[in-house]
């Protein structure tokens, strides 16, 4: 497909444009280093200590196992939210009554802090994968749902009239009018939901499982191993940044060129 070749063609230039961001990240590392010089390594390990700890962690099989477990949980939760949220959101968006009904419920779900959902999930599912995935879904689903709902609610109207005025066939209306429109609402929602999933999964793991990055973080805390804790934080940030800037952002740029 054209979009994919375009993304690949622009990719080296896109990567190079990251140097500006990397420069400010290095400046941030300098400030972090300063923080270490003021507070000492026990409170805030220096970036160098952290990266060394990270390097050592990366030599262990344990870390990769944890990363894999956490990524799997996050992805399951995200995928369930994505499918359910997109489908139900579009469905609700097609009926005024359904969208009226769903709004207060969504507000309610979003109003309960994720930490409270973890406690409930622990009661319902115990210390298990299900608890974590449930919490991820409950945090990410409303974001996707609202995006899909708004997309569907705004489908009717002028552009639809325009398409009808040219007796546009249904299939073409789907591909040329409805799908791009829906996508422009749903895709940003997916991205925020993915970010949310990643944050929530670690928090849920910290409290409710014996494995995963969240659990390792809990262990590092109990051992007062601040370098290891920082290293784990760095890993989580790096994974999120990689997904966000190497995968999602190039796609977003290509498919949303038309946006002002």
């Amino acid at each position: 497909m054209n979009a994919i070749t375009n993304i690949l063609k622009e990719f080296p230039r896109y990567l190079w444009s990251g140097w500006g961001a990397i420069a400010s990240l290095f400046l941030f590392l300098a400030v972090w280093d300063l923080g270490n010089q003021i507070n000492g390594s026990l409170t805030l390990p220096s970036p160098k200590e952290t990266f060394i700890a990270l390097w050592q962690l990366m030599q262990t099989a344990q870390l990769w196992q944890d990363v894999q477990i956490t990524v799997e949980r996050a992805l399951w939760g995200f995928l369930i939210s994505l499918v359910l949220g997109t489908f139900l959101g579009m469905l609700a968006g097609n009926f005024v009554t359904a969208s009226m009904m769903s709004r207060p419920i969504i507000t309610l779900i979003m109003g309960v802090p994720p930490i409270a959902w973890i406690v409930l999930a622990l009661i319902w599912f115990g210390m298990s994968d299900e608890s974590v995935i449930f919490t991820v879904v409950i945090a990410a689903f409303p974001i996707v749902f609202v995006g899909a709902l708004q997309g569907a609610r705004t489908l009717e109207g002028d552009l639809n009239d325009m398409a009808n005025s040219f007796q546009t066939p249904l299939w073409m209306k789907l591909t040329d009018v409805y799908f791009p429109h829906m996508f422009s609402y749903v895709f940003p929602a997916w991205i925020s939901a993915l970010g949310m999933s990643w944050k929530v999964v670690v928090m849920a793991e910290l409290l409710s499982t014996p494995d995963g990055i969240g659990a390792s973080l809990a262990v590092a805390r109990s051992h007062f191993d601040s370098a290891a804790a920082m290293a784990l934080v760095v890993i989580m940030v790096i994974i999120l940044l990689l997904i966000e800037y190497l995968l999602l952002e190039p796609i977003k740029r290509e498919v949303e060129q038309w946006r002002s």
């Binding site: 002028d158 552009l159 325009m162 005025s165 040219f166 009018v177 038309w258």
Partner: peptide, 15 residues
Amino acid sequence: SQAFAFQDARLLPWL
């Protein structure tokens, strides 16, 4: 055959 031109252009922004 018939065609429309509206007061606002009603272009598809993604095309």
